[in-house]
């Protein structure tokens, strides 16, 4: 799956000014807790979140997250958009809730980190 597929599936708005539609994505993590994202997310991931602050981007930067999808129509600030462009992290926005966003991507074949160890 690539970024363009995510946009289509989630009927998403592209928030970033720069985006690579053909960038591959392999896993998904849905969370509003960045601590959990830092503990559990895998490589080449999409992050689904309802949290809307600069730490979402910092977390994405640290974990090499490809793309952030803001659920429930959350709109990142202009400062976040500029930072995302600088960090080469793609930001999308969907009107779907977290649960439905997860369900749509799961149904399309994407998976998360499965069960947590121990």
């Amino acid at each position: 799956m690539v970024v363009a597929d995510i946009i289509k599936l989630l009927d998403a708005n592209v928030i970033s000014n720069e985006i690579d539609m053909n960038h591959p994505v392999k896993t998904v993590c849905g969370s509003d807790m960045m601590s959990d994202v830092l503990a559990f997310i895998k490589k080449d991931a999409v992050l689904l979140t309802g949290l809307n602050n600069l730490q979402v981007l910092r977390t994405a930067e640290m974990m090499d997250i490809v793309c952030i999808v803001f659920v429930r129509g959350k709109t990142p600030s202009a400062e976040m958009v500029a930072m995302a462009d600088e960090l080469n992290i793609y930001m999308l926005q969907t009107q779907y809730t977290m649960f439905d966003t997860c369900g749509i991507l799961y149904e399309a074949g994407l998976r998360g980190g499965r069960k947590v160890d121990g």
């Binding site: 807790m33 960045m34 601590s35 959990d36 830092l38 949290l51 730490q55 979402v56 977390t59």
Partner: peptide, 17 residues
Amino acid sequence: ILSLGFGAGMGLPNMKK
């Protein structure tokens, strides 16, 4: 802090890991 996305008690264990 929880509303900012942190404070779940995962910090130190994750640092160790």
